[in-house]
Write a protein that binds this DNA or RNA. Structure first.
Length: 434
RNA sequence: UCCCCAGUAGCUCAGUCGGCAGAGCAGGUGACUGUUAAUCACCGGGUCGCAUGUUCGAGUCAUGCCUGGGGAGCCA
């Protein structure tokens, strides 16, 4: 095999004869010219087969190769203003490595969502899905870079857990030897609190599972979440961390994929350019007033649902931070506001353009007696939380953190209708294959 | 768990009042020296989701079921 040249590096080879490996993405013909669109994972390159430049056998084959044939092409790299990437390959020779055993199911016209999800393993080959997967990769790398650059330590949380972290959501149950039932994690937060008491600043980044029967564009049963936790941090510090985190990740994705977002995904990137800290902050109480002013029926104590989220978020051109929710609506571990015990020191970040909650977090209850009372109030089994209570028994400190959903962030950044396209193989209530 | 919608060719869909199963794309055979989802001509392609019922006759009407999609609740 000759050293492989990639489409992404094609400009370096102008005027030279090179060999590329890839797949036949599409093919057009115009008599004595065949146009082959070669896809190699790094980009798309038009290979021009002129009848006078190749053998009759090669010319005939070039007009009969099916879509997604794997092939090797040799030719001269030529500059051409008609090409979207500025270059074409003037083909001298080509050989099919493997013709498809049967017709490739995905054409270049429209397909329905259900069919595309059934063919997800093949759908990934489309330009659009390639861009989304690359943005996801960049988002995940930016997440790591952000925390690593601020002295956080990555601490992997367990996937098997003995019980619910929050006691509300439905969990996936699995048999666990002689110990009975285990559950797939729905949050690594409690473990990160333990890690923060050891390392000061810690975060976990991994899959999370929710067995809720949610059928919406914002839900998956298996999704990825990053959860930082910081000792000696209050809600104010936490909110500052949130806005700096979101800004960093969005700008990283924009910097690396701005052109693809614009050209392939048709994203209005000017809206992403505005995503710079600080973000607007309003209390839950203020949010309720904003919602009421729009004529939407709502009273203090009601949850902010999807419609209400959009009403609040659409008032700003940046993500909005809604803090100090009614304590009754939040999990047992949230610390109550000393100035108003009706509300918890929690904060949600709502993305603009109707993408909803991308972050949830806040300051944790650090007082042993108050936390014990909260566990009792929520009717949770105290035995299961003894280790968690130990964190308050041995040198308790104020601490805070949050959880950010990767798929919702990617969907927002890419401007997608549904989170299922942001994860390589989505797991949903009605789908577990491929 | 609840509400709404859809299921007809490989794919996307049309199918009127209940009366012979259709189109575009994809595939095949050709034409064309600049195509960008190329275009043009011709050809092949059907368990109308499943079951029961009404009817002389059901893709079409009724009931039930299955599958999928959208949303609510809940959440990231």
């Amino acid at each position: 095999m000759r050293p492989t040249v990639y489409v992404a590096d094609i400009a370096q080879h102008e005027g030279r004869e090179v060999t590329l490996h890839g797949w036949l993405h599409n093919r057009r013909s115009s008599g004595k010219l065949h146009f082959l669109q070669l896809r190699d994972g790094t980009g798309f390159l038009q290979c021009v087969v002129f009848k006078g430049n190749v053998t009759p056998e090669v010319f005939h084959e070039a007009d009969h190769l099916p879509q997604e044939t794997s092939l090797t092409v040799t030719g001269t790299v030529k500059k051409d203003p008609r090409s979207p990437i500025g270059y074409e390959l003037d083909v001298k020779d080509l050989a099919a490595a493997a013709r498809p055993a049967r017709e490739f199911p995905l054409g270049h016209k429209e397909h329905g969502v259900a069919f595309l999800m059934e063919q997800r393993h093949l759908w990934l080959r489309s330009q659009r899905q390639q861009v989304i997967l690359r943005v996801r990769h960049t988002v995940e790398k930016a997440i790591r870079d952000f925390f690593d650059g601020r002295g956080f330590t990555l601490v992997d949380a367990p996937i098997f857990t003995p019980s619910a972290c929050e006691g509300t959501s439905t969990l996936f149950e699995v048999p666990y030897f002689d110990l009975g039932k285990a559950y797939l994690t729905q949050s690594g937060q409690l473990y990160m609190e333990a890690a923060a008491m050891a390392l000061g600043k810690a975060y976990c980044f991994g899959p999370t599972f929710r067995a809720e029967k949610s059928k919406t564009r914002r839900h998956l049963t298996e999704f990825w979440m990053v959860e930082p936790e910081v000792a000696w941090m209050d809600l104010e510090g936490d909110m500052q961390l949130m806005e700096e985190f979101v800004s960093f990740v969005v700008q990283a994705a924009l910097g690396k994929h701005g052109r693809e977002l614009k050209e392939v995904l048709e994203r209005d990137v000017s809206k992403l350019e505005k995503v710079q800290a600080p973000f607007p902050r309003i209390t839950y109480t203020e949010a309720v007033e904003v919602i009421q002013k729009t004529g939407h029926p709502m009273k203090w104590g009601d949850d902010i649902g999807g419609d209400e989220e959009t009403l609040v978020a659409s008032a700003y051109d940046r993500p909005v931070m809604v803090h100090r929710y009614p304590a009754e609506m939040k999990a047992f571990y949230f610390k109550k506001d000393p100035d108003d015990p009706r509300v918890a020191l929690g904060c949600d970040v709502l993305a603009p353009e109707g993408y909803g909650e991308i972050i949830g977090g806040g300051q944790r209850e650090d007082d042993l007696a108050v936390l014990e009372a909260a566990i009792a109030h929520h009717r949770l089994p105290k035995e299961a939380f003894e280790w968690y209570l130990d964190l308050r028994r041995y040198g308790t400190v104020p601490h805070a953190g949050f959880g950010a959903g990767v798929e919702r962030m990617v969907a927002w950044i890419c401007g997608l209708h549904h989170v299922r396209e942001t994860i390589p193989f989505a797991r949903m209530m009605e789908r577990i294959t491929p």
